[in-house]
């Protein structure tokens, strides 16, 4: 049985082909998915998606969303997704530093919500470039 993964963002289809295995960051922790997985629906956190293809691991930064698994079809709906290899390391690092500074500066409930979200996104992008394996 082959496992099919499609990663959809509002703009485009980021990934739509066969994979061997994936590791998905869900709201309740990471889950690994192999062919013939039981059908589940899960919320996807801001985090990293790891894809095994030809015994190589690829990483992708996911900006939060939803995933549905069943019939050997994985559908991931996210606000934004970037392949680790497509992210500019310098730019990502700068964004992270900026986001860290913003969190410290943030005042009031609303600013804190915004700053923390931005920080998590920035951190994920940096992690996607240097995956901790």
């Amino acid at each position: 049985m082959t496992l099919n993964l499609s990663v959809l963002t509002p703009n485009r289809i980021v990934w739509d082909s066969e994979v061997e295995e994936i590791v998905l960051s869900t709201n309740s922790g990471q889950i690994g998915i192999l062919p013939n997985h039981a059908p589940i629906a899960t919320a996807v956190d801001i985090g990293i998606l790891r894809i095994r293809l030809n015994d190589q691991w690829l990483t992708m930064a996911l900006m939060g969303g939803f995933a549905r698994i069943g019939n050997n079809e994985i559908t991931v709906l996210v606000n934004d997704a970037e392949k680790g290899s497509d992210i500019d390391p310098q730019e990502a690092q700068q964004t992270l530093e900026l986001a860290e500074a913003n969190v410290k500066k943030a005042e009031g409930r609303r600013q804190k919500i915004e700053a923390n979200l931005a920080l998590r996104r920035a951190r994920t992008r940096v992690e996607a470039i240097n995956p901790i394996s």
């Binding site: 709201n27 309740s28 039981a38 059908p39 629906a41 919320a43 969303g65 939803f66 549905r68």
Partner: peptide, 15 residues
């Protein structure tokens, strides 16, 4: 027989 990995509320929260 779709199973919810989290609380349905959490899934809606994500969707």
């Amino acid at each position: 027989i779709l199973q919810f990995e989290q609380d349905p509320v959490q899934i809606l929260d994500a969707l």
